[in-house]
Design a protein around this nucleic acid. Structure first.
Lengths: 193, 193
DNA sequence: GTGAACATGTAACGGGTTACATGATTGC
DNA sequence: GCAATCATGTAACCCGTTACATGTTCAC
């Protein structure tokens, strides 16, 4: 699934500009999808060229004009077919967890900082969740509630895990200081350089 | 953090071939990182060129020869510096959840299939976790236990969430059949095509 | 006056995946 | 006989991010 399909899906819920799509993404898809302007604007242009959406420039007082897009019947058909034909993937790519895996190679203060950063990010996300839920809960579809609820459940667990195991990791990982690297296997290491 | 750093990190735990790195990734990084041969082999070649690892071809009876790499002291230094200097990201990109968000646009049987698929994947992951934990728990570092434990906690929550809300979603999302698309805003949609 | 929010768009770059090329052995 | 496992490597491709270009208004 690419950004094009995502834009089409969002437009199926109501007319929006590229800028507004980005905002919706940040508010509602925070926990599981993100896209930059550099992919949204070209996607919208391509969708318009293909006739799946139509754009209309809206002049605004004291603001740059915005280009609001609406989905066409063709767009609707294509969206339905695309969504139904996907074998959806679920990809997590966490440099954070890789770093934790190699915690013994980090200076203790750095390790603490990285964990606290992650905790902070998750807390912000959760706070934003709550704030957003109160604003939009009534008009949400079951699917939206399901996706948002999933994100909330997972982030809550993740946050609890980090808080529960932070001290333990900090205590136990403090062996391999950066100045005394533990050589795992002398064999090849000695041969090189 | 790129595949190069990851390979270097894995090699700091012991000598391995590219093929074995891939296997380790599948076993231990399942829940938070994956890489294909197309990125691992070039990464290893580049690391060797830079003097961070040394490779040695091992002939094998009845098998293709393997090229086992070991990290050099220089490699160790670089690894430490790289890990310490990273602002690690944590990225989730779930087409699955996007699809759930648009559940009302999917045929009910398709929706059920997609959810069951995800449940199956998570269950396989969890089963593999257990199996792997029993094999490697004793020699794990605190960081490894932390990262693995995080993955297990999150996947367990995700799985429980899917199972708990599956029926509910299937029941409530059954309104928007594909043949009666709900037009969100007649304004632009009517103007196009 | 400085930064944030509003607003759109392009081009270069990067890094990873997919697919291809090659080939032996083992288990079904 | 066919698929899976072992084993390495290359090249084309995709698609997304980052950075740049441009400009206004409002709040501190």
């Amino acid at each position: 699934m690419d950004v094009k399909t995502l834009c089409l899906g969002l437009l199926s819920l109501g007319d929006r500009s590229g800028y507004e799509i980005k905002k919706t993404l940040e508010e509602n898809f925070r926990h599981f999808f993100r896209a930059s302007f550099g992919s949204i604007y070209p996607a919208l242009a391509e969708l318009e060229r293909a006739g799946h959406v139509v754009g209309r420039a809206i002049p605004q007082a004291g603001r740059p004009p915005k280009k609001v897009y609406g989905i066409t019947p063709t767009g609707h058909t294509v969206l339905g077919r695309t969504l139904a034909g996907e074998e959806p993937r679920h990809i997590v790519r966490s440099e954070f967890l890789v770093l934790m895996y190699f915690a013994h190679l980090l200076p203790p203060d750095r390790l603490a900082h990285v964990i606290d950063d992650m905790i902070g990010q998750f807390e912000n996300g959760l706070w934003a969740d709550l704030e957003q839920y109160e604003r939009t809960a009534p008009e949400m579809t079951p699917g939206q509630r399901f996706a948002l609820g999933y994100g909330r459940a997972v982030v809550t667990t993740a946050l609890a895990y980090l808080k529960r195991h932070r001290a333990e990791l900090l205590r136990d990982a403090g062996g391999g200081a950066p100045e005394t690297p533990v050589v795992a296997d002398a064999g090849l290491a000695a041969a090189g350089d």
